[in-house]
Design a protein around this nucleic acid. Sequence first.
DNA 1: CGCCAGGGTCTCG
DNA 2: CGAGACCATGGC
Length: 271
Amino acid sequence: MINLRATLECGQVFHWRERTDGAWEGLIGEHRAVVRDSDGRLEVLDGDKDTAAEYFALDHDLEEIYAGFPRDATMLAALDFCRGLRIIRQPDWECLATFITSSMKQVTHIRQMSQALRARFGRAVRGTDQRAYPDAAALASATEADLRACGLGYRAKHLLATARRVASGQADLAGWRRLDDEGLREALCTLPGVGRKVANCVMLFGYERLAAFPVDTWVARIMRNHYWRGGRKPTPLAIERRLAGRFGPQAGYAQQYLFHHARMTKRRERP
DNA sequence: CGCCAGGGTCTCG
DNA sequence: CGAGACCATGGC
């Protein structure tokens, strides 16, 4: 089972587009893919089926994951809204670079910056006008002005510095897969432009660390409105520890459902 | 026009 | 450790 729209529009990935016939066209790494949601089944219209099944994490047992969710009203409403949303397996560098550019940006802006970087620095892919996300070497050889021209603003410096570390091998993203969650977070946080929130996003979306719990402004608001009794406004770290502890080993899934539901139903409730 | 957006970094108590 | 200033950009 999969809810393809929710999966592709929930703010974990930014380069898929819906065609007029309802299918979704995008790239998995450097490979073109066209997929469709036919009654909750993933239908692969173009591209390798196994690659798509891996990317969309069809092996995640959603019912087991849902069974681990707390059964409060907020979580149940999010589950009802997002059922079938899957945390996908993104290429690590693509995920890291994208979320370095995400700070203080809306989802639509992240999509714009990502598209600009692909158009300017990405490799062409056969059979589509979409371009692959530029690898670390391609961005490492750019100038800060080049990146600013893609709308990155002050994030250009961070992305450039991190691209150089990855391209030089000083940061070994593939090797870091052997680290445990704490070690991986610590390693990611050594990179320019990566703090705890971005690190958690990269862990969740790029390293399949389903316990990672990113706390952004939306999640903080949900926390204040629904999960925090008394006291003063908690720090992001306090929120993460409280909710990640409550939601258990697959807290990242719960977080993404809460995030997407809140964002899609905004303006109904505010502090 | 003012506010806010999937924040990070640096400085100062 | 915790709070505040600063950083760019675009949509509403």
